[in-house]
């Protein structure tokens, strides 16, 4: 069977994507601990390596060497599948994300649909893990994760639909292509399409927070109430994979937000400026890490919302506004 270059390229990209996902998962932990520390005016990890840079490595080794305890009375099949079910969809969605013009594993025409589909699979893993570990706290947190995910899936998809309408395609590379030129071409400032575009970005950002169970919506793994929520019974690498899955989902959310709203790999300055104007991977990573910085920044500032407050926020505020945005955009497109 002759190995045509396409397969080699695909394999290389897959290895690169998985490396990117796990590297990110590890070093986001480091970034979170450092950023939280400085917000609270303390140092954060600094013993292991310069500025504590080897800390995630050491944490990883610690998690791997820890004993994988499968408590008695636990449904073994569900208990073992759950962490994988959380991790795999996150890595799968990396396949379609275009980091730059050429740097994309598989440029699918329905890239956006693939990502949205995988986004709803990861919380199934949470559900199975919680149900499998037969722990009261886990079951409560699973119930919360379920209704939270349903409540925030709808406004997110409505915003995605409006954007697909604006850019006319679901292929991520083309969506980014449309946002060429300076930052006023980005969708976030694309007031021609709909005056509510910045509000749409805000809603998308809030839904992304809720999708990945990040504060202030971390109802499912609320430390002070449900101890550790869905993964109370997990130890060692089981917990490690859950953790990596959560961070991979945050990275996915940040990437999709940059692609849809902040003009992917295009630089904010018009191409005429020689050095800064050129669009490249650096800009994509810069924007993505800025969004991740904000996600962490929000976590260490706000208290947790109440559960019914969270659902009211979605059903009563986010969904109506996103529908208004949808109708407004279609009207604007029809008229102009």
């Amino acid at each position: 069977m002759t190995l045509d270059p396409e397969i080699i390229r695909l394999l290389a990209f897959l290895v690169g994507v998985i490396a990117f996902a796990s590297f990110n998962a590890a070093y986001l932990v480091w970034l979170e601990r450092k950023e939280a520390a400085h917000i609270q005016r303390r140092i954060g990890p600094k013993e292991v390596g310069p500025f504590g840079l080897l800390q995630p490595l050491v944490d990883g080794i610690k998690l791997m060497t820890k004993q994988l305890i499968v408590p008695a009375g636990v449904d073994p099949v569900l208990f073992k599948i759950a962490p994988i079910l959380v991790m795999v969809p996150a890595i799968m969605s990396f396949v379609t994300i275009p980091f730059s013009e050429t740097l994309v594993a598989r440029n699918l025409d329905l890239g956006l649909l693939v990502i949205s589909a995988f986004a709803s699979v990861n919380f199934l893993g949470l559900l199975l893990g919680a149900w499998g570990s037969r722990n009261k706290y886990a079951v409560i947190s699973a119930g919360r994760a379920f209704s939270q995910n349903v409540a925030y899936e709808i406004p997110m998809l409505v915003i995605v639909v409006t954007l697909v309408m604006v850019s006319g395609t679901m292929n991520l590379t083309e969506i980014v292509g449309l946002q060429m030129g300076g930052f006023w071409h980005w969708n976030i400032l694309n007031l021609a399409a709909s005056p509510l575009m910045p509000v749409a970005f805000l809603i998308f950002f809030v839904c992304m927070l809720a999708e990945t169970n990040r504060a202030p919506f971390d109802m499912s793994e609320a430390e002070s109430e449900l101890v550790a929520g869905a993964f109370t019974e997990y130890s060692g690498m089981g917990f490690g994979v859950f953790f990596m899955g959560e961070y991979a989902n945050i990275v996915i959310g940040a990437c999709v937000a940059t692609i849809l709203f902040l003009g992917g790999w295009h630089s904010p300055f018009p191409d005429t400026i020689p050095f800064f104007g050129a669009s490249s991977v650096i800009w994509f990573l810069l924007k993505m890490y800025f969004i991740i910085f904000t996600v962490i920044w929000i976590r260490w500032t706000f208290p947790r919302t109440t559960f019914y407050g969270l659902l009211n926020l979605s059903w009563k505020i986010l969904i109506p506004i996103s529908f208004v945005n949808l109708i407004l955009t279609s009207a604007m497109l029809k008229v102009f």
């Binding site: 609270q40 303390r42 500032t301 947790r304």
Partner: peptide, 16 residues
Amino acid sequence: FILDLGGFSPLLYAFD
């Protein structure tokens, strides 16, 4: 109290 409600930073400022 704010830690129970999920906010982590005010605790450190109060301890300061």
